[in-house]
Write a protein that binds this DNA or RNA. Structure first.
Lengths: 186, 186
DNA sequence: TATCTATTTAGATGCCCATCGAAGGAGATG
DNA sequence: CATCTCCTTCGATGGGCATCTAAATAGATA
């Protein structure tokens, strides 16, 4: 109903909107590649390559296999195909529009409590707080699992008190937790 | 054959990697929209909307029709479909890879003469030897200066006869030397 | 002509992020 | 154990870009 589904789309496009990452995908499509190999082929330092790999992993586009210390990364062709198929369909655009012209009240709440992406304060009223929490929950991709550290980072982008918000998300059953690992409900 | 092709891909993804532009596409998919209309629906100022429209026009995704002073923009559904179809195909990724590791032939040479990072033998043919030398040269950072001892170490990681290879690199003008100090050419 | 309105261009600002060096694991080897 | 190698994480920096205000353009109205 609420459609910040759009943030997921933006995230996917941003992940692909980088020459280094596209080159890495091309190289990993041929065969599995070590970080060092990508680093020398692309003339980038190791940390930079690791950063890009993390980003691509977040999209579910690559898989990793460890062989000794070496980490070998490979492109998941099926995932790429699925992404290409689903990325820009009319359905998606419709969802985007729903997001824009959706519930006026919810949009007003978000406008009131947010300064850009930054949550000015946590709403005291339960209903308003739930709007904010749903907006936060939409930043977690269904099906993915997040360690607590990453949950804190994602929430922390919008408000310093990530601990309170994280608990509230669990309480509202928008996120679920087991053994220190979090995922989006439903 | 070397591909600024990749810059086109990056540009397309970047144009789509923005929530405002995606929302605008969604709205323009329903019906044609004026700048003012988009502006109020998205809660953005006029100039910002114009900026985004220019970006989307650069992708060929929208068309404009003037009616008096008002400019009415509309999504070109066919263009969108074509973009979605062509954006992330294996062909494109192959082109990207060609951009990185050059001609397929060069990649084949490297595969033939290397066992992992170890050069099995120095190619006798001049063209093949040059491919290997360029690969070796890529392990020297442009702008840095290397004493001869370090040059030997770096080359020695890949082949025991570092002296021959070092001289070949100078001969091919891929490395330069002055007073016993080496650096990467260009 | 002057004026009003819709849009575009120019210039400035602030945030996001690609990249790097340094430091911190973690497996292998001896 | 110590050490080496490969990778990841952390913190900092610089460049690009979304957004804004102010000014310029252009059509409509009178």
């Amino acid at each position: 109903m609420t459609g910040p589904e759009i943030e997921l789309m933006v995230n996917a496009f941003k992940a692909l909107a980088d020459a280094s990452r596209l080159r890495m995908l091309g190289l990993m499509a041929e065969r599995e590649r070590s970080v060092e190999e990508l680093s020398s082929l692309l003339d980038l330092k190791g940390p930079t390559v690791s950063h890009h790999l993390a980003r691509l992993k977040g999209l579910g586009l690559i898989s990793m296999r460890a062989e000794g210390n070496t980490h070998l990364y490979r492109l998941d062709g099926d995932a790429l195909h699925a992404l290409n198929r689903d990325l820009l369909t009319p359905d998606k655009l419709a969802a985007v529009t729903a997001d824009v012209s959706g519930e006026a009240w919810e949009r007003k709440v978000l406008r009131d409590f947010f300064d850009g992406e930054r949550l000015k304060e946590i709403p005291a009223s339960r209903k308003k707080r739930e709007v904010v929490l749903r907006w936060l929950a939409s930043h977690f991709q269904p099906g993915l699992r997040y360690p607590e550290k990453e949950v804190n980072v994602i929430i922390g982008r919008h408000h310093p008190d990530f601990a309170t918000l994280r608990r509230e998300l669990i309480g509202a059953e928008l996120l679920r937790r087991e053994a220190g690992v979090y995922w989006r409900a439903e």
